[in-house]
Design a protein around this nucleic acid. Structure first.
Lengths: 216, 216
DNA sequence: CCTCAAAACATAGCAACGTTATGTATTGTG
DNA sequence: CACAATACATAACGTTGCTATGTTTTGAGG
């Protein structure tokens, strides 16, 4: 005999958690179920406890990120697309900074790592396209370059979304990715233009040029 | 009339917090003072509450980082020194990962940002030396390049120390910094050698070459 | 050398947290 | 229909950060 839990309740709780998170209010067991009609036990039947709920919220974060990345429509310029993926990554992190923080806060378990892997694979495909089109050298390892691009994106997202860097620091993404892709074999001036195009498409107000860093 | 608090008690509590953090045990008000002879009120007289304690722990983290960075002895090769600073940054983050996480976890206030600024200034001076020695172009803004190097370092530290990337991913630091410094005007092969030298000095077992990324 | 107010500190208690125990309703299956 | 496992509500428990209250200690002024 298999009792199936109501998926609507599960989504409801996750959404409420994400909503509470975005409102910068503490996500507590009792605040979650308040007003929903369900009792605190629901969190235990559906998630096994608060840890399980946080894991589900983390998954939700990666799912939303995947949606954002999937919305990046490939063009004839694979380097632009790569920069656009980076911009989409940052755009997502800045849209839901607390959710982004939760995604990378706790120690990663296998399930979380798998979700992160999907993000990485998206970048790997982007690098492969650029390599196939001749923009990058043949000897660049797509996984390596994708990981390095991810490192740059995550560093920027972390330092800007919940860290000491101001929003204008997002513009550092352009020279960072340009340096990386130029080093991978792309023509410097062409690379710069491609990256700027891809970056501007999602972060139009932060792509002109980097300005000051932390405070003063 | 001015009562002066005992600085030793303050340091004791901060050290115990860092120690508890490193032991991956929950840092609670009562676990902090247990066995020290002081009562829970000490945390309030010295720090004004747990928030104040966490802020002090964060400061301690930046102080330890500053010590690590100051231990990097300048050589005749400013690009090597820059890479060595990056390696020291990562070495510190991996030595005390939970402390590093606390440093960048909470929303930054002014005091934290000032501490982070010291870290950045250290990098700025390194870039200025490289520019003065002719390795970098004259038109590179030291603050910009330092911020970008920091972004790379923090991204790597965050993804490796508490994230999904394995320790071997530290090796990505070499190509990342090489790309960045080459883009700043340094000669590619010379840059690579300098970065590898600086990197190896503090992370000898993770500088040969990047391997796989997340899981599989 | 007192006096006395302020600071430092201990004890006890509070509300809120995550969790668990217990009992009841609901569901699917034989 | 009957039975057993799931879903769920209520109530309680231990622990958390914090505060209220009383006591001790400190340092400056008369």
């Amino acid at each position: 005999m298999v009792r199936v839990k109501d998926p609507a309740v599960r989504s409801l709780l996750i959404d409420r958690a994400a909503q509470t998170l975005a409102a910068r209010e503490p996500v507590t067991l009792r605040s979650l179920v308040a007003g929903t009609g369900v009792s605190t036990m629901a969190v235990y039947t559906y998630f096994g406890g608060m840890d399980g709920l946080w894991k589900a919220v983390r998954q939700e974060g990666f799912t939303r990120l995947a949606v954002r990345l999937a919305e990046v429509s490939p063009s004839a310029d694979p380097v632009r697309d790569l920069a656009a993926l980076g911009a989409a990554y940052l755009s997502n992190a800045l849209a839901v900074p607390d959710l982004y923080r939760v995604m990378f806060d706790a120690a990663f378990d296998l399930e979380d790592a798998a979700a992160a892997d999907d993000t990485l694979h998206c970048l790997v495909r982007g690098v492969e396209r650029a390599t196939a089109s001749g923009r990058f050298r043949d000897d660049v390892d797509p996984l390596e370059l994708a990981t390095q691009s991810w490192t740059v994106g995550h560093g920027l997202a972390s330092l800007v979304a919940t860290g000491p860097l101001p929003r204008q620091a997002l513009a550092h993404g352009v020279p960072l990715l340009t340096a990386l892709f130029t080093d991978a074999g792309d023509d410097p001036v062409r690379c710069r233009r491609s990256v700027e195009r891809g970056w501007h498409d999602l972060l139009p107000d932060h792509g002109s040029g980097p300005s000051g860093a932390a405070s003063g």
